[in-house]
Simulated assay, not measured.
Amino acid sequence: MGGLIGLAASLVLTVEKIALLKNPEYVPSCSIDPILSCGSIMRTEQAEVFGFPNPLLGIAGFAVVATVGVVLLAGVELPRWFWLGLQAGATFGVVFVHWLIFQSLYVIGALCPYCMVVWAVTIPIFWYTTLHNFRLPALRKYHGVALTTWYSAVVIAVLQAFWDYWITLG
């Protein structure tokens, strides 16, 4: 499910980026206010770290994850080398997403709702791939606690970074 959700968010971000490239005056659908502003983020260097729009990485990566999910649902057992490759991709994804979170919160000063969807699905993709690959019984037992703690840390960082803005809304 995470692969499909991430793929959908990446596709929407790509369409929005193309529209912005065609028309610099275009306001993306995810630009809601000064903080929730995809347009602000899409215009930064961070939005094209490797020389092309970041969502293209998401399209490729999440398509792989979605395909793996379908293959697993079909009952196919994948070889160890494949799982290690998936681990490498998921690790790259989660590290990259956390770099983007930092950039969004503390350098750019804006949030992109579709990007936050990508954040939200990348974390459990990495987490459950890691639990599968390394078979850590203690962590498997408390997998939900670890994931909840991780999400809570991200939410606290978002609240802290934009606290001055949030308190003006009330």
Rank of each mutant, 00 (worst) to 15 (best):
M116E: 11
F52S: 12
G75T: 10
S37C: 14
S29T: 07
T122N: 12
G89L: 15
L105E: 09
L139G: 03
W81I: 13
V155I: 13
A110R: 11
Q46G: 00
I108N: 12
L20E: 05
A66Y: 13
I18P: 03
S37E: 13
W150N: 00
W163P: 00
G170L: 14
L13G: 04
M1G: 15
A90V: 02
L36K: 10
I32Q: 06
S37R: 14
K141C: 02
L21T: 13
V68I: 14
L159T: 02
P53E: 04
H98M: 14
L147Q: 06
G170T: 10
W163C: 00
Q160I: 11
G170R: 13
K17R: 09
C38V: 06
L13I: 05
W99A: 01
Q46E: 11
W99D: 02
S10A: 10
Y151V: 07
V95T: 03
D33S: 07
A90Y: 01
L131I: 04
T67A: 14
F52T: 10
L159N: 00
I108W: 13
L169I: 14
P137V: 08
F126T: 03
A9R: 07
P34C: 04
V68L: 06
T129V: 14
P28M: 10
S104P: 05
W166V: 09
L78C: 05
G61S: 13
L36Y: 12
L86F: 09
F82I: 12
C115S: 10
V71L: 13
C30T: 05
N133C: 15
L73R: 12
T149W: 00
V121N: 04
R140T: 11
L131M: 06
F126V: 01
A146N: 04
M1N: 13
D33A: 08
F162C: 03
V95F: 10
P137I: 09
F96I: 02
L20K: 08
T44C: 11
R43W: 02
V95M: 06
S104M: 15
A19E: 11
W83M: 05
S29Y: 09
K22T: 03
G51A: 05
L147T: 06
L4I: 11
I18D: 09
L72T: 13
A66S: 15
C38M: 08
A63L: 15
P34S: 08
T168D: 04
L100F: 04
T14K: 03
N54L: 02
G58S: 07
V70S: 01
I59V: 14
I101H: 08
D33M: 06
G2K: 01
L56P: 03
A157N: 00
S104R: 05
R140A: 10
A19H: 09
Y26C: 04
I18R: 15
G58A: 08
G3P: 05
A138C: 00
T129R: 02
S152C: 12
H143C: 07
Y114D: 01
L20D: 03
G51M: 06
V117S: 09
